[in-house]
Design a binder for these strands. Structure first.
Length: 128
DNA sequence: GCAATGACGCTCT
DNA sequence: CAGAGCGCCATTG
């Protein structure tokens, strides 16, 4: 399946002013569950003409994602604060309060059963 | 074509 | 709660 940037931008445009959504959330809304990285990539490639409120997309911990340029990060934070969003002491946004909860539309698809993340070291490996 | 990279996210330590 | 590891996959060199 091909990831469409337009669909990602369309989902971002749905985020109301004064609220934020996570990369994963946008990916799901755009129809590409688990492709959160692609969302960030699409936003990075965005040429900021003001038509897409990219500043309203944050990571799952409610913080502005670190970027190469620290300036861009502060700029994003300033934009959000201008919309009335409050940052906590740890530089995080309370998603329970400012997170966007889309009404209707696409509901969360049933999550695929988590895979074992534990296949790194077998007991034998320790025996060397 | 192959390897590295990254505005992410989840699990296990 | 913080860090480390790994899966994810479009882009880039």
């Amino acid at each position: 399946m091909r990831v469409s940037r337009e669909r990602i931008y369309a989902a971002v445009r749905r985020i109301p002013r004064g609220r934020v959504a996570t990369y994963g959330q946008i990916a799901t809304l755009a129809g590409f569950p688990r492709l959160a990285r692609q969302v960030g990539y699409a936003l990075a490639a965005l040429d900021d003409d003001g038509s897409v409120p990219w500043q309203r997309v944050v990571n799952s911990r409610g913080e502005v994602s670190p970027r190469g340029e620290p300036d861009a990060e502060r700029f994003q934070r300033a934009l959000l604060e201008a919309e009335g969003i409050v940052f906590g002491a740890a530089g995080r946004i309370d998603l329970a309060r400012f997170g966007w909860k889309p009404r209707g539309g696409r509901r969360a698809a049933p999550r695929r059963p988590p895979r074992r993340a534990d296949r790194r070291a077998t007991p034998d490996a320790y025996f060397l």
